[in-house]
Design a protein around this nucleic acid. Structure first.
Lengths: 344, 344
DNA sequence: TTGAAAGCGCTAACAA
DNA sequence: TTGTTAGCGCTTTCAA
């Protein structure tokens, strides 16, 4: 049976409130008393019960992190970074996986709301209005999406898509295809808009294929459509789809980058390990995870209030930083000269 | 400000204890009253505060999950499965990453202990005695390791290693190398023992290289040593190392499987996507995650007790199932005939 | 079937 | 600097 504050109080001959202070406001207690209490606590293996503490302070020191799919290699580095950042600030992270299901997303926010000081909503598929509504229940930071009035951090995949298309154009490609991602993905819209604009600016044609599941299988299924549409270069919603596409292309005897160039987005570890190595847009996932945690904590998620509302600021004054993280083109082996290469 | 049990009681004109019963023991309350309370709760958006509940019941409905490295692709499917299984049983999962550091492991168990009903310790690097000691603080299920007296679930990587070596022998290889994993890894010892035994039984030589970090880089660094030791076939501690080794081998102009055959362990998604596709031993990570959760919950982690000790059973009677999950050889492209192929 | 009361482990006024 | 007291939101005897 774990030691409680009372056990420590008894052992060190002080009142429980003194023990409490020793841990939550050490400067308010006499150094001698403090060290005695600390010694007893040590002996008894006492650690304050955070849940009990949370009941009063309103701060659980927990953060919820909701992702569409833990197994999608884009997320683990983000989760890892968030977890590490949180731990450095004495917070723990609840991780939950929605299986790309918006209904599960909503349910999880509700379920987590009371146990956490805030939730990091990664690549949510919900509607904006639902997200706004949920944000009244618990402080939210949205990752890889922007919602008016809410703090967010997003990698600039639109800018990345532009980089990718410009790279393709400079290689002499004039017939491009875009493998769209899942419906409801904000990032997907950003990529699409930027890719279309960049293609038009370069005088190239761009066919949009999709929406598709953001997986290797999703990409693989598009090999035929890609050939049919006559594109010589393809930008995929993410690396997984790009890699799936390359596989699919190989299966139908199409050489990459010989006949078709392929660019992904994310720069997951995997993209360095396939043949050909994937040309891709590196998105700073770890930085996004760290930033999201910081944003949440800055926004007063940790403020608490005795019987008061969550968060430290009024709704109006609550900071709603919308951080955008730059991306970077990483040229590897999956892109090569296009038909108009001599123009380049 | 979220609604509390008192708000609901006031709105529905009953005592808070009736509201409490409506949620925790519905059969004890009059159907009419129950539906009225439920309706009010719905309107107010009331949800019981689990932390407050845990204070009394001793059951937090949370589970801790500690892994060495979230970014290691072996873990996400395990985490995902555990999370899903837990959610189905109305539990949430805290995920924490130790960065392969035993000291962090210990600290995390302490930190999580009060907030969870049990901890899933995945591939721990701690000593057995420390694990046993920690298990007195909070119910533990050990994953991919066996500790006397503690429930555990492990994929049978020893059996897998035997399968792999036998496969290599049958291909005519007589000079084998084993890329060992990290120091402190129980799995590593199992693999080593089984590989050594299988090689000896087959009359083949086996050189053990390591210990090494269980990463792509760790494997890549071993390309030279592998060539120097004259092995024509290599078994790696995990797929990541196998893939790194293949990369490294390619960099020094060695063909796989032409000159050297390589087998991994785990069958991570990646192993299907590299060139050549990796021959490997599939370990049922998702099943391990699910089983670990079940084991924890069965062992009375969820039992709680008013003022009593954690867990539902006495120490003596506490079930200590040691589940072992069979593995399976998946032959792909990274293994081929060895010098003694004609003998096979 | 419901209400009253005690209390889980802890913090936060307030008083001494 | 320390102790006293009230109470966070909830469950659980016990009595009605």
């Amino acid at each position: 049976m774990p030691a409680t504050i009372r056990d420590v109080a008894r052992a060190s001959g002080v009142h429980i409130s003194t023990v409490s202070r020793t841990f939550s406001a050490p400067h308010l207690v006499n150094p001698d008393t403090r060290s005695r209490v600390l010694a007893c606590a040590e002996t008894l293996g006492y650690r304050p019960n955070r849940a009990a503490r949370a009941l009063i302070t309103g701060r659980t020191h927990n953060i919820g992190l909701i992702v569409a799919d833990i197994a999608n290699p884009f997320f683990p580095p983000l989760i890892k970074a968030a977890e590490s950042q949180a731990r450095g600030r004495d917070y723990h992270i609840f991780v939950a996986d929605t299986n790309e299901d918006p209904a599960v997303e909503e349910e999880l926010v509700h379920a987590l709301a009371k146990q956490v000081d805030g939730v990091l909503l990664c690549s949510p598929r919900m509607s904006n209005s639902l997200i706004e509504q949920l944000s009244r229940e618990v402080p939210l930071v949205v990752v890889n999406r922007q919602v008016a009035g809410l703090p967010s951090v997003a990698t600039d995949n639109g800018q990345g898509a532009r980089l990718a298309v410009e790279h393709l154009l400079s290689l002499g490609h004039r017939d491009l295809a875009l493998l769209a991602g899942p419906r409801g993905s904000w990032t997907n819209r950003e990529i699409r808009r930027a890719a279309v604009a960049a293609a038009r600016a370069g005088g190239a044609a761009l066919t949009v294929l999709g929406p598709n599941p953001p997986t290797e299988t999703g990409g693989g299924a598009l090999a035929e459509p890609v050939r049919r549409c006559g594109a010589t270069a393809v930008l995929a919603y993410n690396d997984l789809m790009a890699i799936g596409l390359i596989e699919g292309l190989r299966a139908i005897g199409t050489a990459v980058p010989g006949e078709v160039s392929v660019v992904g987005i994310d720069d997951i570890a995997l993209s360095r390990l396939t043949r050909p190595k994937l040309t891709t847009v590196a998105t700073p996932a770890a930085a996004a995870g760290r930033t999201a945690v910081d944003l949440l904590l800055q926004n007063g998620a940790g403020a608490g209030a005795r019987g008061g509302r969550r968060g430290g600021l009024d709704d109006d004054r609550r900071a709603t930083a919308q951080v955008t993280l730059r991306t970077e083109l990483v040229i590897r082996e999956s892109t090569g000269p296009g038909p108009a290469a001599s123009n380049a």
